[in-house]
């Protein structure tokens, strides 16, 4: 009896110790992921003087927002020194219509493919799906020529066009997979009620798509906001999105290297998607997994 008690006590202790170890590991990993963000924030709040003398991981002795101000409105990229502000707006002007258009098209495409099956619909879907996977390098050259021909080279509408075209595959996939689980009887009932193709889409399907609309908008916004390849390939001075501007500021060789400004600029560029992530993380993760595990 005694021995039993002792052994249960010892297994209890082992279990507790394991539990602590587990939490310790988890916290250490959390620190690993958080450390860069922490260093970015603290660095952005330090003066250049302090950065050069102090340590990477120490808190700022004196908090200053100068670097943020510079990053927003005065940092130099190339020859111009107007900070990230104009590029932040470029990114918004580019991302908002591109996200809305590609989401809408994806919704109606998904609706057709999942609910109005016709001969060849599956082939079309497969072709769109394969299109999601191409390395964009393979379309850069012809797209640059085409944008030139259309008179959209180096313009924001050109970037919107590119993002819509290459976002279509994913948005269609999202909606198709969402709609495919909806019983075809719903459409039949609506047909008998007298509704047509668009009325059914508008009154029956769109209202029940709120979750997938949120997922798609978040996915597309993150993709487009964070894009660099299209931005750097198809924009010119003045129309660059924020990722390109950030890279230019960081690589700008004029004057002293201002690490605090770089970090503040990086945080500004990351802020919109970070906020989306924090506010709607659930939908963000759902989009990520939906985008990778097909179906």
């Amino acid at each position: 009896m005694q021995g039993d008690l002792a052994s249960t006590a010892s297994t209890q202790i082992t279990r507790l110790a394991l539990r602590w170890l587990l939490y310790l590991l988890l916290v250490l990993f959390a620190l690993y992921y958080l450390a860069p963000l922490f260093v970015m924030v603290t660095t952005s709040l330090k003066s250049l003087e302090e950065i050069k003398t102090g340590s990477l991981v120490s808190l700022p002795r004196e908090v200053t927002f100068d670097a943020w101000g510079t990053a927003w409105s005065a940092a130099c990229s190339g020859i111009k020194c107007e900070g990230l502000k104009p590029y932040f707006w470029n990114s918004i002007v580019m991302a908002v219509p591109a996200v809305l258009i590609s989401t809408f098209l994806g919704a109606i495409n998904g609706y057709v493919i999942a609910q109005w099956r016709f001969r060849g619909a599956n082939l079309i879907f497969s072709l769109m799906l394969f299109g999601c996977f191409i390395p964009f390098q393979v379309v850069l050259l012809p797209m640059a020529r085409l944008l030139g021909l259309m008179g959209l080279a180096g313009s924001i509408p050109g970037l919107i066009f590119v993002h819509v075209v290459y976002g279509l595959g994913f948005t269609t996939l999202f909606f198709r997979n969402y709609y495919v689980s909806i019983s075809p009887e719903l459409i039949r009932a609506a047909k008998i009620d007298g509704a047509g193709f668009f009325r059914i889409f508008w009154s029956v399907f769109l209202p029940l798509s709120v979750p997938i609309i949120v997922v798609t908008i978040i996915w597309q916004f993150t993709q487009i906001w964070n894009d660099f390849l299209f931005g750097v390939s198809f924009s010119q001075a003045g129309t660059q999105p924020i990722t390109v501007a950030l890279n230019n500021i960081v690589n700008s060789t004029t004057g002293v290297k201002e690490y605090n400004v770089d970090m503040a600029a990086a945080i500004i560029a990351a802020l919109p998607t970070l906020i989306v992530y924090v506010v709607a993380g659930k939908y963000f993760i759902r989009g990520l997994t939906a985008g990778s595990v097909k179906g």
């Binding site: 988890l26 990993f29 959390a30 992921y33 958080l34 860069p36 963000l37 260093v39 970015m40 660095t43 990477l56 993150t222 906001w225 964070n226 894009d227 660099f228 990722t243 950030l246 890279n247 960081v250 690490y259 770089d262 970090m263 600029a265 990086a266 945080i267 560029a269 990351a270 998607t273 970070l274 989306v276 992530y277 924090v278 993380g281 963000f284 993760i285 990520l288």
Partner: peptide
Amino acid sequence: LRTIYLYPMALSLIVTGTAWRWF
């Protein structure tokens, strides 16, 4: 914890690159 582990995925690779270049 999950939120913490996953947030880098929301960042642009340009941001990630800029940050790590500094560290």
